[in-house]
Amino acid sequence: MDLNLIWFILVGVLLAGYAVLDGFDLGVGALHLFAKGDTERRLMINTIGPVWDGNEVWLVTGGGALFAAFPDVYATLASGFYLAVYFLLFALIFRTVAIEFRSKHPSAVWRRAWDIAFSLASAFSAFLFGIILGNLIWGVPLGADKEFHGTFLGLLHPYALLCGLTVLSVCMMHGAIYVVMKTEGEFHNKAREWVKSSIIFFVLCYVALTMATMLYAPHMVEQLKLRPVLFAIPLIKLLIIANIPRCIYKGQDFLAFVSSSVAIVLFMFLFGSGVFPNMVYSNPNPQHSLTIYNAASSPKTLGIMLIIALIGMPLVLGYTAAIYWIFRGKVKLDQHSY
């Protein structure tokens, strides 16, 4: 195992961590307008109140790690997906300020405006992440100069849109389960209904996406053919997804949440092993793809960064766990809440 592979995995871990953690934040946001009345909506926001900010740091750090370990990937994607990246950033800005601003004023109009901003921005962020993911699976036109040679509208092809919907549906399912886990009483029962509908939405998207990938993105399956053991992953994934309604039915909310988290990690793992050793697949002209070797920093830097990660990540995991432990249990509204 060389440093390039280690960093491919580490960047993957950071982004998978982001997908699991901010996945439920975005999902809670996307579901927000289905909650009715100020109390329910406050409950929604306060389920993620103490953690959304830390969750977003996984994206910031993932972006920083990508910049440091694979500068060409960072540069090509950010500049190539220019408008998509900015629409995503604007959506994330609105999400952040909506959470903070909403509670600062009691007026109903003020709150409704921020409810809409929070919910649309969350749904839109999840959808855009999916568009970007879809394009990475499908491949984007790269030149020998490592630069993107496509257009913004070229990113919005049917496969990418389907992937956008799929990511949105995963987030909604994950978020609904999180709300079930963090609430009680009548509202809890309402959220249980959301889980049912969002699972159906997700399974439909997932089946369509899997078939589209097999048919139209056969390069993703090549790696699996090389290592047939990887075919076990989609199967395990199916079992885990099937486990979610079972746990919800039995009232094992935490296990349901663990299941959907594992499903998201496997989703990322499958994506990673499908594109490997490419990081940005070039379509057409696969020979121009950015790989974990031609897009990486020097071994010296990768080594230094590994030391930083080995010192830093245990601390990060430590205090993330501590925060989740302190704010465990059902959410209660008090004077410090949003």
Binding site: D53, G54, E56, V57, G63, T301, G312, V316
Partner: peptide, 26 residues
């Protein structure tokens, strides 16, 4: 500059942002 500048930026994420945002919750 990614090889040089990027590592400082990533270190900021690992050492600073997680600490800050985590304990901000408390």
């Amino acid at each position: 500059v990614g090889d040089v500048f990027g590592s400082a930026l990533a270190a900021e994420g690992v050492f600073a942002f997680f600490l800050e945002s985590g304990f901000l919750a408390i």
